[in-house]
C-alpha cells in the first residue's frame, strides 16, 4: 500500500512533466495548426542549458531561470527563422521539416556539449525526503516538481482565460484570419505563442534534469508520450491535456510497477517474466486504443475543430 502511494506520486510527477510538454504542443497545434516534432529538442535544450548554467553560476535557482529564458529565446528565434515558413504547408511537410530540425538539434548538441551526458546537481535542501503521511517518505525535489508544474498550469490557465494575450490566443485558435483582419499583429502573436510553448518544454526539461541524465535524444521518447497525452486529451485542449497527462503518467508508472507482479499471480513465473515487461510497456497504448474506439476525437475535443 505504501509502495502504491509512492508509485502513484511518481505517476503524478511524470504526468506533470507530460503536461508541460503537451500544453506547448497542443497550444502550437491549436493556434498555428503546426505539428512540431522538434518540441522534444526544446525539452532537451532546456535541460542542457540548466546543467551548463548551474556550472557557470553555481546557483541552482539562477540556472533554472537562465535556462527558461534560454529556451524562450531559442524558441522565438526558431519560429522566426524556420517554423513560420511551415504554417501554410501540409502536415506532411511540417513533419518532414521539424524532423530535420530534430536531427539538427541532436547533432548540434553533440557538437557543443559532446556525446557524453551531463548531470545537474540539486541543492542540498532538496536532496532530503519528507514524511508525507506516517511511514511514507517522499523526495522533496519530486514534490517541488509537482507543485511547480501545478503553479505553471494555474498560471497558464490565468494567462489564457483572463488576460488580453490569452484572449488573442483563443481568438487566434478559432479564427485566425479574423484576428488578423482586426489589426492584431498575428506574426508577433505566433512568435510569442511558439516561444511560450518552447519555454514550457524547456521548463519540463529543466525540472527533469536532476532526476535523469541530461543526454542527446532525451526528448524523443517523452515527446511520443506527450503525443499520446494529446490524442487521449483531444488536440488543442489544454484542459484535456492536463487530465490526460495525469492519467497517462499514472497508468505508465503504476502499470510498470504492478503489472509484472499481477502477471506472476496468474501465469507461470517463466511466462510472466517474458510477458511482464512487454505488456506493461504496452498498457498505455492499450488505453489510447480504447479511448480511440469510443472517442476518436479524444476525451475533451476542442470545440473549434
Amino acid at each position: 500500500m505504501l509502495y502504491f502511494i509512492e508509485q502513484s506520486l511518481n505517476g503524478v510527477q511524470l504526468g506533470m512533466l507530460l503536461f508541460l510538454l503537451a500544453a506547448g504542443l497542443t497550444l502550437v497545434f491549436g493556434i498555428m495548426d503546426l505539428v512540431n516534432l522538434a518540441h522534444g529538442s526544446l525539452y532537451m535544450l532546456g535541460a542542457y542549458f540548466a546543467a551548463t548554467f548551474a556550472v557557470l553560476t553555481g546557483s541552482f535557482v539562477a540556472a533554472v531561470a537562465l535556462a527558461l529564458i534560454g529556451s524562450l529565446i531559442v524558441g522565438m528565434v526558431l519560429e522566426v527563422v524556420a517554423i513560420r515558413r511551415l504554417y501554410e504547408r501540409s502536415h506532411l511537410d511540417q513533419v518532414l521539416g521539424t524532423f530535420g530540425l530534430l536531427l539538427f538539434f541532436n547533432e548540434a548538441v553533440r557538437l557543443i556539449w559532446g556525446p557524453a551526458g551531463m548531470t545537474l546537481a540539486l541543492p542540498a535542501a532538496m536532496l532530503t525526503a519528507v514524511q508525507i503521511i506516517p511511514g511514507v517518505f517522499y523526495p522533496v525535489y519530486r514534490l517541488v516538481i509537482i507543485l511547480a508544474a501545478l503553479a505553471v498550469a494555474a498560471l497558464l490557465y490565468f494567462v489564457v482565460m483572463r488576460t488580453r494575450l490569452g484572449m488573442l490566443i483563443r481568438a487566434g485558435a478559432s479564427n485566425r484570419e479574423m484576428v488578423g483582419a482586426l489589426g492584431i499583429n498575428i506574426k508577433l502573436l505566433y512568435t510569442l505563442v511558439f516561444g511560450l510553448g518552447a519555454a514550457l518544454a524547456g521548463f519540463a526539461g529543466v525540472m527533469q534534469a536532476p532526476i535523469l541524465t541530461v543526454q542527446i535524444g532525451m526528448g524523443e521518447n517523452i515527446l511520443i508520450l506527450a503525443f499520446v497525452v494529446i490524442i487521449i486529451g483531444g488536440i488543442g485542449s489544454i484542459r484535456g491535456a492536463f487530465v490526460a497527462a495525469v492519467f497517462v503518467g499514472l497508468v505508465e508508472t503504476v502499470g510498470r510497477a504492478f503489472l509484472p507482479d499481477m502477471l506472476h499471480r496468474i501465469l507461470s513465473t517463466n511466462a510472466a517474466a517474458t510477458l511482464g515487461p512487454a505488456l506493461s510497456s504496452m498498457s498505455i497504448y492499450m488505453v489510447m486504443a480504447a479511448v480511440l474506439v469510443f472517442r476518436p476525437e479524444g476525451l475533451f475535443p476542442a470545440a473549434s475543430r
Binding site: 503525443f227 499520446v228 494529446i230 512487454a278
Partner: peptide
C-alpha cells in the same frame, strides 16, 4: 490529419517497446 500521424507513431512505439521487452 494530425491524429492519424500521431496515432500511427504511438502504435509503432508500442511495438518498439514490445521488442525491447522480448528478453
Amino acid at each position: 490529419g494530425v491524429y492519424f500521424i500521431m496515432i500511427t507513431l504511438a502504435f509503432a512505439q508500442m511495438i518498439y517497446y514490445v521488442a525491447i521487452g522480448l528478453d
